[in-house]
Amino acid sequence: MRPVVLKTVELTVSFGGLKALNCLDFELCEGQFLGLIGPNGSGKTTFFNALTGIYSPASGNVFLYGEKITGASPNKVYDYGITRTFQRSRLATPLSVLDNLIIGNQRNLNFGLWQNIFDRKRFKAELKKQTEIAEALLSRFSRDLAALLFKPVSSLSMIDRRRVEVCRALISEPKILLLDEPSAGMTPDETRALMDELQDWRKQHPLLATILIEHEMELINKVSDTCVVLNYGEKIAEGRYSDVATKTSVRAAYLGED
């Protein structure tokens, strides 16, 4: 059995009276690819936001390798090795692809005043290293995109933007990757291409645990090891996609039956 990386115990997030997440128990193992599904408003993105410190949970706990990290700030969560993409792309569009990727690699940058402003030789060496890392990472996803390293993100196509967003999340070599509906705004073919590229990366980083929020059931079926289904902030099913999809409670949640 692979060790558990991330665990939540009775995690609850509420907005006013509404419980967006209700007593959620959840486990993620090393190297696991977990699909998080559920109808709109079922609390999937809220779950990501609660994990990454954007919302603070009303009660319950989050554990990373058994260590309690509940309520940690977004900065801290990043330092622990959890990174994410956003449902609506949140890249710094006027900046270059390189700049966006370097932003993702905060943890490995030197912010000393001396090196940044005065010792430009050392800064140049660090820049060179970061550029190489970024280029190598990008070219794994798309060689064409790697050639656009010095172009502003605003000039990229949707799929390239998604790629940059995924690479920004991967460049710091995190332990856990959270993908919030990467297919939004892309064609099924593009989504498939991106997923294949991601699977390729996972082969080389077998410990990386991934949670994927997705509406495309076919995709979930194809890439996920297991699935968790949320409805009204509660977990209503868990298991292999093929098992989960046939459950009546899950069908009811999607089709709105009682």
């Binding site: 410190g53 954007i54 900065n75 990043y78 990174t83 956003f86 932003i103 905060q106």
Partner: peptide, 9 residues
């Protein structure tokens, strides 16, 4: 939001 999620103080 994105900045904070990537560790920017």
């Amino acid at each position: 939001v994105a900045s904070a999620s990537f560790g920017i103080n």
